[in-house]
Design a binder for these strands. Sequence first.
DNA 1: ACGAATGTGGTACTCAGTACCATAATGTTG
DNA 2: CAACATTATGGTACTGAGTACCACATTCGT
Lengths: 210, 210
Amino acid sequence: MAIVDAAFELFEERGYDETTVDDIAERAGVGRTTFFRHFGSKEAVIFPAHDELLAQISARLKAADPATRDIAVTEAARIVLRHYVAEGDRARQRYRLIGQVPALRDRENAGQRQYQRTFAAALVSRWADRPDAELRADLMAAAVVAAHNYVLRRWLRGDTDAPEAELSQAMGLVVSQAAIDEGVTSTVVVVNSSRSPDDVVARIRMALDS
Amino acid sequence: MAIVDAAFELFEERGYDETTVDDIAERAGVGRTTFFRHFGSKEAVIFPAHDELLAQISARLKAADPATRDIAVTEAARIVLRHYVAEGDRARQRYRLIGQVPALRDRENAGQRQYQRTFAAALVSRWADRPDAELRADLMAAAVVAAHNYVLRRWLRGDTDAPEAELSQAMGLVVSQAAIDEGVTSTVVVVNSSRSPDDVVARIRMALDS
DNA sequence: ACGAATGTGGTACTCAGTACCATAATGTTG
DNA sequence: CAACATTATGGTACTGAGTACCACATTCGT
């Protein structure tokens, strides 16, 4: 989108506060009205696709049954991570801007809270039999978002080249923390499969070492 | 403060968006300039004392040695909870407004993020010897804020009369989750599952491929 | 009682965001 | 292809938040 490009260009050149919506519209070759019709606000031009991501997450979480819910949560977080990583430089530009402009930081926080609520809503059923289901869902949702942010931040800063692997690891910690007091602190693996035991063991070892 | 009273009155009467800063200043009997000198923005008039609370938290967390750090975290969270509970009706008014006005919700989220960062910064030293100290600190900080919010929300809605006791309980869960050992993603192996081999293999494959 | 610091109110400005209208582009149906 | 409906666009004018600046009052220290 030409408008987004123009906006990022100007924000880098002059800074966010020093750039007016008129400036963006002018460089993009459109009218001011058109800008506001596409992006509800000046801030929104930096954070695209939020609604779509939320919908994807929601769908992924809903598609899980009790047995695959850990995987679903991890993969839902991975969807978001993957989206940012796919953006590449643009994500890093955004990160830089957010670090400088408080208003953008607020906006980002607001978005993350939406993720958190989406996760929490999908996670309550996990502890359906417990009286503290809502609390545990809130805790796990907060942890999922925190873990995702931690890994994403590392990637944005260039501290890692394998963000997805790090997310797996971080989410492993989150899942095991959430599973506390449930009797088991870890997942269950079964023999009796059609594969040879050695094959299964090898794969398990891979998972542990990752 | 007369300005705060006037603001809450008008917000309840006409709603937040329908109230201008001029309206508030007029009812409070002050000039518009004075309003903005005391509260940097229209939103800020609803969220007072943030900086002081952050300072209190920081101080409480810094005053802890390794042996009393769990207590310190719990009490730091309790400081915030106590502050809101002490506000009484005003806190509930704010809660109602936040539920209705998106802009205020964003602002609230931003504030909570500051708490979260304050906690995270103070918590890193807890896992100083581990390579994933920052992640674990982030996770615990997120959990602390989530637990506090959960209890506060229950009190705001009138679901409990003993919020401090509930906070203790919730923080107990948070602390025990945070104390879990190294982030092994899977450990226990179980034989003789009642699941079909195909089902098991499919699940393992999903986990391994993720 | 004096000057200095600080608090206050007013005026004028910028800019984000909204409402409305007039016009161009596109698509649909006969 | 022509007439029409739909939708995207651009312009104008407005409201209201937030800032800058200045003149004036209040309070304080000595």
